[in-house]
């Protein structure tokens, strides 16, 4: 027998070949397992009597009284929604490669495993097999991930000027700029002119009305005033802050371009000419671009989430403790809460 032939019959070789074959096939098996499609959606959600009681008890402890019908409904709807989001997230395999989920699983395995020192990927795999991935923290993590996914919605994140304009139109009241006036004022101080203040003012007024005075020229006639003789773009409240309310009201009642009768302030008497009028209104789009963009994105996220949740609900059947099971839930209150609570976190 040749040396090769003898070697081919040796038990060692058979042993080695067998080992390689087994090893290779186990690898294939493993790969096959991970490549298997995720389980189908379990579309039946059940809240047991115990679940419901626990929720009610929690409410009582917080508020000191039991929930009324509407509050109870909202509690249950919230619990159902949480469950839906979790299941949907599992169905979409959002847990694969998710860092937070992995961390949680590794933590747990280190607690329960007899060999906690193994590499993390192994620990994760084993945790999944043991069913340790069905725990409350992971549920919450995946539920939030699902919410974020829904908020993004099918559309892109592009916001164009039409969207911004619409947002501007909707929020007009808060974004509105006050009416403002730019004025030239000639000031006559009571402390300087005493009893002559008003008559001096009439003299100056006559002079002003008889000629055409630029703002600079008119300013030369004024007693010194710390904020000057040219007041640019003052709102009525700002005029009130500097001169008092009667002055502000009278100035805002003036016509443009003509010198006023003497107007009193705590300091003396003023002759005022309105140079420019800005009516109240919303600022141009350009000025508010970042603010409006943020607002539009927020609104979109809310709408997407709402729509996404409704759609989600059509895929599930819900049974609560003795109530009739029905496809989806008309959780209107739950939706608002959902969106509302997102906004609060936002």
């Amino acid at each position: 027998m040749s040396r090769l032939a003898r070697f081919a019959k040796s038990p060692l070789l058979h042993f080695l070949v067998l080992g390689v074959v087994l090893f290779a096939s186990s690898e294939v098996w493993q790969k096959a397992e991970t490549a298997a499609p995720p389980p189908g959606r379990d579309s039946r959600i059940v809240l047991s009597r115990t679940d419901v009681e626990l929720l009610e008890q929690g409410f009582r402890e917080r508020w000191g009284f039991p929930p009324n019908a509407a509050q109870r409904r909202a509690l249950l709807d919230q619990a159902v929604l949480d469950e839906m989001l979790y299941r949907e997230a599992r169905f979409l395999s959002l847990d694969l490669e998710d860092g937070s989920v992995q961390r949680r699983l590794v933590e747990k395995m280190r607690w329960v495993s007899d060999r906690p020192g193994r590499p993390e990927s192994e620990l994760v795999r084993e945790a999944n097999e043991l069913g340790l991935d069905d725990d409350v923290v992971i549920r919450r993590l995946l539920g939030e991930k699902m919410r974020l996914l829904l908020q993004r919605g099918p559309g892109g994140t592009r916001v164009d000027d039409a969207d911004l304009q619409e947002q501007l139109d909707r929020g007009r009241a808060e974004l509105e700029m006050p009416a403002r006036r730019s004025v030239t004022q000639v000031f006559l101080a009571t402390d300087v002119r005493g009893d002559h203040t008003l008559s001096d003012a009439r003299d100056v007024l006559a002079k002003l009305r008889s000629g055409s005075w630029t703002a600079d020229q008119a300013g030369e006639l004024s007693d010194p005033f710390p904020i000057g003789t040219e007041l640019r773009s003052y709102s009525e409240l700002r005029l009130q802050a500097r001169f008092g309310k009667p002055f502000a009201e009278q100035v805002f009642a003036l016509d443009r371009g003509v010198w006023s009768e003497p107007i009193a302030s705590p300091y003396g008497v003023h002759l005022v000419r309105v140079e420019d009028v800005q009516e109240a209104g919303v600022p141009p789009l350009e000025q508010l671009r970042p603010t409006l963009t943020r607002a539009v994105m927020r609104e979109r996220a809310k709408e997407n989430l709402s729509r996404g949740l409704s759609h989600l609900q059509t895929r599930y059947e819900v049974e609560i403790d003795g109530e009739d099971s029905a496809p989806g839930r008309r959780t209107r209150a739950g939706e608002r809460d959902e969106a509302g609570s997102i906004a609060a976190r936002g």
């Binding site: 409410f59 929930p67 509407a70 809460d337 609570s341 976190r345």
Partner: peptide
């Protein structure tokens, strides 16, 4: 009041 019709409290714990 004890049986006030307040809307349910928010379910998320804020940061």
């Amino acid at each position: 009041e004890q049986y006030d019709r307040e809307p349910p409290p928010p379910q998320t714990s804020p940061l």
